[in-house]
Deep mutational scan, measured.
Amino acid sequence: NNDALSPAIRRLLAEHNLDASAIKGTGVGGRLTREDVEKWLAKA
Results as ranks from 00 to 15, higher is better:
T26H: 04
A4S: 14
E35T: 08
E38P: 02
N17E: 08
D36R: 00
W40L: 15
R11A: 12
V28L: 12
I23K: 01
E38V: 09
A42P: 09
K24F: 07
A4V: 14
L12M: 10
G25L: 02
A14T: 10
H16Y: 08
N1T: 12
D19H: 08
R31T: 13
D3S: 10
A8L: 08
L18P: 02
D36T: 01
G29L: 07
W40D: 07
L13T: 00
T26I: 04
S6Y: 05
A22C: 09
A42W: 06
S21V: 08
G25F: 01
I23C: 03
N2S: 13
A8M: 08
L12A: 06
R34D: 12
L32H: 02
S21W: 05
E35W: 08
L12N: 02
I9L: 13
R10V: 14
A42M: 09
R31Q: 14
A8Y: 07
N2I: 13
L12V: 07
K43R: 10
I23T: 02
E15L: 10
G29R: 06
T33V: 04
D36M: 03
V28G: 06
G30T: 03
L5D: 06
G27H: 02
S6F: 05
G27P: 01
E15P: 01
N2F: 06
L18T: 07
R10G: 05
V28M: 10
N1H: 12
R34T: 11
G27Y: 01
L41Q: 01
N1I: 13
A44Y: 15
E38I: 13
R34Y: 15
H16W: 04
R31Y: 06
G27S: 03
W40T: 15
T33M: 05
D3A: 09
P7E: 15
E38R: 07
I23L: 10
W40A: 15
E35A: 11
I23M: 08
A44C: 07
T33G: 01
D3I: 09
R10M: 05
I23N: 01
R34K: 14
K39N: 15
S6V: 05
G30K: 03
D3W: 00
L5N: 05
R11Q: 13
D36F: 01
I23P: 02
T33W: 00
A8W: 05
W40E: 15
G27Q: 02
E35Q: 11
R10F: 02
N17L: 08
D19W: 03
P7M: 07
H16G: 02
A42R: 09
A20F: 09
H16D: 00
E35N: 06
L32Q: 02
D19Q: 09
A22T: 12
L41W: 08
D19K: 08
E35L: 09
L18G: 05
K39S: 12
P7N: 11
R11I: 09
I23S: 01
K43V: 13
D19R: 07
K24N: 10
D19N: 10
N2P: 12
A4D: 14
L32D: 00
R31N: 09
